[in-house]
Design a protein around this nucleic acid. Structure first.
Lengths: 216, 216
DNA sequence: GCAAATTAATGATTTATTCAAG
DNA sequence: CTTGAATAAATCATTAATTTGC
């Protein structure tokens, strides 16, 4: 094959190793400069771009957290169950609740958010604590996720593409799109194709999050 | 003071006007090129960066959606309420059920969290299903007929740049992270302090499903 | 009228979900 | 199943509106 346009980055073992090492060292959300450097460094081991590094940390962080969370929740549930069924469990088979992951992970002191500013009042909410909900959007029952794959239709005209997650990217990297003020005014540019837009209803809106017109 | 350090972009009325016009025209998630152009165009009216444009669309889209959603839900609730009171009203006679939300009624009530896990939110249809109400044709809400309009539309020559998008952005925005492999390998870069580069919360499950299904 | 005190908007970040390649 | 990529939702934080006491 000429070169499979491989639509996505395939990190080499070395790259992964290094990234993980960094993660372990505490790197979580590297900024532009850091990403630049990491990328430069890793590019020695294979093709790689800044966004790959960016995404890697994003995903890794999220998934580590998720993993941990799930573990914790399961643990809690077991505890609750145990508590609730104390006697029964006592006599029943010792289910053996693994004594929690090493406490080292969870703590993560409330350090100040990176360089930015402000120690936040909120953010650090309670650990995991799921009220009574097991199910975190994940289908526990293995072998049932078939449902998730339904609809293999192409759906061509669907929006997708385009945007990309510049979102954080650009923030991280401070672009300065500040083009010279001389740019042409561009009449009315109507050249933007109208793409379909989500708007998938769902009337949640509950959760009564923050300031609700009360004592703000 | 000469210039407020203003940490954030303050769009001028013209800029906002143009952006809104674009939004109305169907622009939702402009890609790199588009953002570039928009930025260029708008920079004529005042300082502005690509990320500002990007964020603007992100936020505007999200908030329009949210607004609509809330409106629909409120309406839905009212319908339910009406429905529910139907009998009572019927026998109680003349209870006066105002047809549309007098803004003071139910303020952000605790709705039931619809399955947040919509398998395929793609198709834009299916708003808040309206019970069996008669008046489906109530809220025209100008500029919100997105569903109908954006969906069909022309995807003519645009043909989505799919995977290119992300790359495009960065390319567009300078700092190509893809440094030539010959760049300084940067041996061990120990310049990443294990400090706070982020690492603000590990096990924070933020809100942990505030919608506690309340077991009916 | 005006300036401190609130509240409403909205720009900017972060986190959670989802999609799909391998 | 793992995980790179992308998007949407939730948050946070600052600015503009507005209200309020003087």
């Amino acid at each position: 094959m000429p070169q499979t346009p491989s639509t996505r980055w395939c990190p080499t073992p070395e790259q992964v190793m290094i990234l993980e090492e960094m993660y372990r060292s505490g790197v979580r959300t590297p900024n532009a400069a850091q990403i630049q450097q990491i990328t430069a460094h890793l590019s020695f081991y294979g093709k790689i771009e800044g966004k790959n590094v960016f995404y890697w940390f994003q995903n890794h962080k999220a998934r580590e957290r998720q993993k941990l969370r799930r573990r914790l929740c399961r643990h809690h549930q077991l505890l609750l169950l145990n508590n609730h069924h104390q006697q029964q469990v006592a006599e029943a088979v010792s289910e053996d609740v693994s004594p929690l992951p090493s406490p080292t992970t969870l703590t993560a002191a409330p350090l100040t958010p990176h360089g930015h500013s402000l120690p936040h009042p909120h953010t650090t909410t309670a650990p995991c604590f799921i009220p009574q909900g097991y199910n975190l959007h994940e289908a526990p029952i293995p072998g049932l996720e078939l449902a998730g794959k339904l609809d293999s239709v192409e759906t061509q005209e669907e929006d997708l593409t385009a945007s990309m997650a510049a979102e954080e990217w650009m923030t991280t990297m401070d672009f300065s799109t500040a083009l010279p003020p001389c740019c042409r005014p561009l009449k009315t540019l109507d050249l933007f194709p109208t793409k379909s837009t989500g708007l998938k209803d769902e009337c949640s809106s509950s959760k009564s999050s923050s300031c609700s017109t009360s004592t703000n």
